[in-house]
Amino acid sequence: MPTKAYLLEFYELMLKIRMFEERVTREFRKGDMPGFVHTYIGAEAVAAGICMQLDDHDYISSTHRGHGHCIAKGCSFRDMLAELYGKETGLCKGRGGSMHIADFDRGMLGANAIVGGGIALAAGGALAAQTRKSDRVAVSFFGDGACNQGILHETMNLASIWKLPLIFVCENNGWAESTPTEYSTSVSNIAERAHGYGFAGLTVDASDAEAVYEAANSAVQCARNGDGPTLIEAKIGRMVGHYLGDPEGYRPKELKVKARSKDPIPDLASKLIDSNALTEMGISNIKDRINTELDEAVSYAKDSPLPSGADVDIGVYSE
């Protein structure tokens, strides 16, 4: 069982991700943020629950929906927002944007705009850890859409035969863009596919923070102990569209309403209040603190310089 202090930190981290995404949604709608944005709203418990078990030396690879992974791995609002605005001060100097955000100092090997594109990269981080005989682990986050990509299957097999210290985390929100998972996928629980590759697969409800904690804890320990990979399938209610601006004509409205009715953040807040670990005033204080940090970060990002067009082909190669 996680301690109260741990759950408080968990709650605050989820709230940080949610409030960041809500702010990004508002700022994006103003029209001066370039590119495509996919928010992590509704999945917060997954990034928080997994990444709280990791430190800066551990590796993660992320997806096009990667802001939550960044925040949970310790990226700052300032550096992330500057990147989203395409500024020279951004994490990737404005060359990547939302879908290609990365922070190598924190083991964050990049968001990835190719579905399934980051899975083998995390396995490479795990292979580096194993080759160096370190106790680092790697986590590959991917969505249900990636579970039918060949590279996931190739990588699950390799991770199993080499006992790589790798955790596969499938964020199953039931939809690959406009296609329901029940249509696209041959099993009702994606975690079952791990069994075909000889390792454990766990299905958890991503609206239950404690369940995510338990699964993450066992998978990370297994990897650190040299006992090989685990697949965690976190079932998420998709509370928002595929991307910011998605009219979602393909999805019955009641499904969205249903998804929004199971929200891990107020659920955990209620639990913490019931156990006297948190008060309404405490929540209000946390939100004020996060809002102050967001205000400062948005101003910093907006005031930061844009890259110069003259530098367009600089930095393609390493020295």
Partner: peptide, 22 residues
């Protein structure tokens, strides 16, 4: 490391391992 026949994963693991310092 001898591998199974999985070109995409082999290449990707190589990319990830090089990003991680090998």
């Amino acid at each position: 490391r001898d591998t199974p026949i999985s070109e995409a994963a082999i290449a990707g693991i190589g990319v990830g391992a090089s990003a991680a310092g090998l």
